[in-house]
């Protein structure tokens, strides 16, 4: 539970929440979450404070959901890819060619966490109160040579990301090379892999733009989300007024600020990328379609089966609802910053 409950000078309770985060300083994840922490601290007049441990120190990135569930941390933030069976509701975003961009995906998952009964029940059962699930961006491909069609991928040794990425890699005739994000730089440098899949954020954070000169958006869309949760017990035991501040900030975060910050940072990273490599390319629609069509497995069906076995009741209904939410939100919003970047360069 909250470890630092102390009586404030005016008799009200002061709450210190421990945060386990995978975010390194100045990263996209940190900048986004920082808004949420600060707003809550300010709107509760400092009655709630956050004690944020350095990335990977209290709980490793893959262990963070577990740390939040068992109460070692009160709040956590990490990639949902690390423990997919807890997050079928978010891993839906890794189905290739389904999810266009960060904002519609984040909003859809946020809405469905309460609107879809199965999802709400599973969050509760996992003892996680969801705060936000924001994809780190559309998946880009970087290589030494131009990668503008499926044929260019044939035979390439490709470092990919995402739960269903293997299917897409296979379908394109490329070979998967398993490298963690920090290992990728040295792996590419030595020729272990020819190309890599990363969001725009990764091209800068892992300095891949410095060794891979050709970057392109192949139309796969998002491939995972950065999830943020609070321990359910901690959340429900918050004093009413504080809980309503948390809810209010969380709502504003999901409806506006997460995306505003995401867009700002991604646009900045776009500048850095374009400064280094000149332009970010984008696949023709037919070419993306050709890649999508070449994937033989029915990944939506596979997601439904997996999600059901992970405890999400009515997973098929979730998928349908997710798709219509994406349609709804994609219509009236500005282009995803990765696409905007490709338009610029």
């Amino acid at each position: 539970g909250c470890s630092g409950d102390t009586e404030g000078s005016d008799g009200t309770e002061n709450i210190e929440l421990n945060v386990a985060s995978w975010a390194t300083p100045d990263s996209l994840s940190e900048e986004m979450a920082e808004w949420w922490y600060t707003e809550i601290e300010e709107r509760t007049d400092g009655r709630v404070t956050f004690n944020i441990d350095a990335a990977d120190s209290l709980c490793s990135a893959s262990e963070i959901p577990e740390c939040v569930r068992d109460g070692r941390a009160d709040v956590g933030q990490t990639l949902t890819d690390y423990s997919t069976q807890l997050f079928p509701m978010a891993s839906i975003s890794s189905i290739p060619f389904l999810s266009p961009g960060s904002e519609p995906v984040a909003k859809a998952i946020h809405d469905l966490s309460t609107e879809h009964e199965g999802a709400a029940a599973l969050w509760e059962e996992n003892n996680l109160h969801p705060i936000a699930h924001v994809p780190p961006g559309r998946l880009l491909l970087g290589g030494d040579t131009e990668l503008s069609s499926v044929d260019h991928l044939d035979g390439l040794r490709l470092r990919m990301a995402g739960q269903y990425a293997q299917e897409a890699v296979d379908a394109a005739g490329a070979n998967s090379v398993v490298l963690t994000a920090p290992e990728t730089y040295e792996g590419i440098e030595r020729g272990l892999a020819d190309a890599a899949g990363f969001p725009l954020d990764g091209t800068v954070a892992y300095q891949l733009k410095d060794i891979l000169p050709e970057w392109t958006d192949p139309g796969i869309g998002t491939y995972t989300t950065i999830g943020m949760w609070m321990n359910s017990d901690v959340y429900s035991e918050l004093p009413d007024d504080i809980r309503s501040v948390v809810d209010e900030v969380t709502e504003e975060y999901n409806s506006e600020h997460a995306h505003r910050i995401f867009n700002e940072i991604t646009t900045m990273q776009c500048d850095l990328l374009l400064d280094t490599i000149g332009e970010l390319n984008q696949w023709e629609d037919d070419e993306s379609q050709r890649w999508e069509d070449s994937i033989e497995a029915d990944l939506e069906e596979r997601w439904v089966e997996g999600a059901e076995s992970d405890g999400l009741t009515d997973a098929a209904g979730y998928l349908e609802a997710y798709k219509s939410k994406l349609d709804e939100y994609s219509g009236d919003m500005e282009a995803d910053p990765s696409l905007a970047c490709a338009e610029r360069g």
């Binding site: 390194t24 920090p182 730089y185 040295e186 300095q207 410095d210």
Partner: peptide, 11 residues
């Protein structure tokens, strides 16, 4: 490499 990523200096 990790230091370079953390400090954002050139790997």
């Amino acid at each position: 490499v990790l230091y370079a990523i953390l400090a954002n200096v050139s790997i």
